[in-house]
Amino acid sequence: MSLKKLGLIALLSLATLPAAAQTQVVRIGATPGPHAQILEAVKPIAAKKGLDIKIIEFSDYVVPNAALASGDIEANSFQNQPYLDNQVADRGFKIESVGLTVNFPIGVYSKKHKSLEALPNGATISIPNDPTNGGRALLLLQDKGLIKLKDNVGFKPTPIDVTDNPKKIKFVEIEAAQGPRVLDDVDAGIINTNYATAGGLDPVKGPIARENPKGPYVNLIAVRSEDKDKPWVKALLESYHSPEVKKFVEEQFKGSVLTSW
């Protein structure tokens, strides 16, 4: 082969390096259902900005932050600010929010009763057993008038903070993902929208009561604190907050998931 041809091959090889260098793999943890589905819609938009998004699904709310903190993933998209604050306080994770995503109004579901008023005395209600979502469930019941909680209880009340319980409701604390599976065994269950959807429930028409969508429970994208100002984070947020993704959320979920940008 001539020197001229070898030189041409070398130049062509070098010409491909900048494009390859611009592509960055970003592993994002998400819970199954809407969070993961929305990220699938983000992928082609992010690809145009040089990001190769790999979606890693987790079946619970605990592991995604541990995986992020340890470097097994670069970001996660599954939680709200009160939950993240609780995880950081309890576990010392150096991770933080870099942008808002969507809101999933939590709902009360029942296979036995058609309204909260129809719940009998001594009814059993399942609630998530993590502090943030369990507290969120109790705050919902207080908002609907079923119970009263201690004053200034904040965002993480537990059943021992209930001060007035006229119907003598019994609370069954379970892993959030198990909510749809235990509905046959309780009078009602308070279930996060992503798990309701994954469990075949209709999060718009299905609940007998639903949380006010305005509040602190908007979901977010979290990254390690050391990464928050990196260019790929900005590109990821721009991709997520695009008109195309907003349209996807509105058409796909028809009101069960609300965009927050």
Rank of each mutant, 00 (worst) to 15 (best):
L39M: 14
S260N: 07
P203H: 13
N80R: 00
Q37A: 14
G99W: 02
D52Q: 12
N133I: 01
S2E: 08
F248E: 02
E251S: 00
I73N: 02
P243N: 06
N194M: 12
F93S: 06
D202W: 13
G215C: 13
G255D: 00
G92T: 03
K167S: 10
T31N: 13
K150G: 12
D85C: 08
P18D: 05
K247E: 15
I45K: 09
S77D: 05
D164F: 00
L84E: 02
L236M: 10
G7Y: 02
G145S: 06
K156C: 10
A46V: 08
V218I: 14
S110W: 10
V162M: 03
L17I: 15
A137E: 03
L146Y: 06
V162Y: 07
P207L: 10
S126V: 13
A118I: 06
K234M: 12
T101D: 06
D90K: 09
V257E: 10
D130Q: 02
V42S: 04
E173W: 12
G200H: 03
I169F: 11
N65Y: 12
G7E: 00
P82A: 02
Y61S: 07
G255I: 00
K254Q: 14
T193A: 10
A235C: 08
E173K: 15
N86M: 11
L140G: 13
L84G: 05
K111E: 04
P157V: 12
P166D: 00
V233E: 10
L68Y: 04
G71T: 07
A69G: 09
Y83P: 00
L237M: 15
D202M: 14
D164I: 00
K148H: 02
P243L: 01
G145V: 01
L39N: 03
Y109F: 14
K111P: 05
V88C: 05
G92M: 01
K114D: 12
T132P: 03
N152V: 05
N219W: 02
G29N: 01
K144D: 02
G33T: 14
K228V: 13
L6G: 04
S126L: 05
V223C: 10
E238F: 06
S260D: 06
I169D: 04
L12K: 06
L146G: 01
G92Q: 04
F171P: 10
D227M: 13
D72S: 09
D187M: 08
Y61F: 15
G107V: 04
S115F: 11
L17N: 02
A176G: 12
E57Y: 05
E40H: 04
G7R: 15
L8T: 13
D227Q: 15
F155S: 09
V108A: 01
H113V: 09
G99R: 11
L12E: 08
V182S: 01
K170M: 11
M1I: 14
S59N: 08
G154H: 03
E211W: 00
L146W: 04
P207H: 09
A235M: 07
A222T: 15
A67F: 09
F58S: 00
I127L: 09
P231C: 12
K54D: 13
S77C: 05
K5T: 14
D151V: 07
V249H: 05
D184M: 06
A198I: 13
A36W: 13
D151S: 12
T197I: 15
V162D: 01
K5P: 08
F155E: 10
A222E: 02
N76F: 03
L8W: 07
N152Q: 02
P120Q: 06
